[in-house]
Design a protein around this nucleic acid. Sequence first.
DNA 1: CGAGCGCTTGACAGATCTCAATAAAAGTGG
DNA 2: CCACTTTTATTGAGATCTGTCAAGCGCTCG
Lengths: 237, 237
Amino acid sequence: MAYYEADTFGHAVRTGRPVAEMCASKGTSFEHFGAKQAHYDNHAVIYYEGDPAKRLYELASGTVMLYKLLPDGRRQVVEVLRPGDLFGLSGAEENDCTAETLTDAKVNEIDLRHVEKSADLQRHLTKCLTKQMRVLHEHAVLLGRKSAVERVASFLMHLVPNRGGLGCVGPVDDTEDGYDLQLHMTRQEIADYLGLTIETVSRVVSDMKRRGIIRVDRSDKIHLNKVCGLCQMTGMH
Amino acid sequence: MAYYEADTFGHAVRTGRPVAEMCASKGTSFEHFGAKQAHYDNHAVIYYEGDPAKRLYELASGTVMLYKLLPDGRRQVVEVLRPGDLFGLSGAEENDCTAETLTDAKVNEIDLRHVEKSADLQRHLTKCLTKQMRVLHEHAVLLGRKSAVERVASFLMHLVPNRGGLGCVGPVDDTEDGYDLQLHMTRQEIADYLGLTIETVSRVVSDMKRRGIIRVDRSDKIHLNKVCGLCQMTGMH
DNA sequence: CGAGCGCTTGACAGATCTCAATAAAAGTGG
DNA sequence: CCACTTTTATTGAGATCTGTCAAGCGCTCG
């Protein structure tokens, strides 16, 4: 079924020409620019830090993380990507991060030599990179200035659509302000993303559970009882 | 004299047309694309976080920092920019950071509406943004995973050209491996960049002084006695 | 010379990390 | 379907690093 979609996209490539409007209207996905789509299983490495950078990647579905390692094994997850995000552009001969899937993922891949040529694609790149840069800025604040509780609260809030950010719509309903979410990361991955240890993440989650802010149905299935309450804990209000 | 250069650049704008080769050959500076150059004094704010994003900026000379504030006053400096770097692209209606000079600075400014149009400019943007993203990734590792000593050591190493990074050339001379550097940031600014407190930065610097790794001639004039030795303290070897 | 600002230093507190044990969940093979 | 192993998550106790608060130092400039 997933494979079907790939074929559909492949077809679009064969018939379509790069058209700015198509790109702009659809927002994400650049299969129009001669990309081939690849599938990756859960926890598959797409490329390693230090590998020669050959392709530009666009995440079509699923989740991918980018991380860097220090020689002694410390790891920092620098980005958690969602569909539409780009990766593989390191600005050098070699990739600056390792890219690894967090779920099954579909990825559009374009040879870097082709990227240079298309003006529409360049415009698309600028837009995507700018957006990702904004996220990196906010994450720098989290890593540099937030407490463990604020980091975890911010992390959870980012998984709730249309809440917490600039376009926060507030509680939909006065009495009900819950939200069910599915984590695609282990505690270790979350810790490495938030610049904490696995034990600290676990303790903060347990604490939120004890205080009735969240309910943990399974370690990767968490119900937020009060989204607004959680948002107050992010350090941003 | 600085003003003279601005005139020279301004002249180039009036006579030249956007040419990819000009841009590529010079590497930085996009005065060819109809930019106006502005001068800012030391510690002048170019724009505030939350202001409407109207222009794209390219730093022509000097140093600029981008920072974000939390409501309680905590500050994180998210980027320290060098000539050739871009800023002002937030990917939204409003700037996501405040931009403030750390020195006198010359800045090329283009109205965002003009940016859309030029393909060459877009290509230039992609290249610059990619490079800055790489720096942000590395800084995330610093903020998330490095100790105070490693952070300060990394910070100082970044101020030494051609050392520490991928293209490290090693000591030029077997006996001499010193380097004189000029900080353009106060201890507070450094602390806010490294995710530390001013006291911790001060203590780490004093400690390095005591151990003979650096010599502090003035609080903003630091001599590195052994660049290689300092590099060993960054956590990256 | 004195005021003001930035920097340094000390003593202490507290948050997070480390190490270790236990518990829970997921995968394996009979 | 059930032991059994392996992995992942939780919890506790203690150590450590960095932050907090407060005082003192040393420029720079009027």
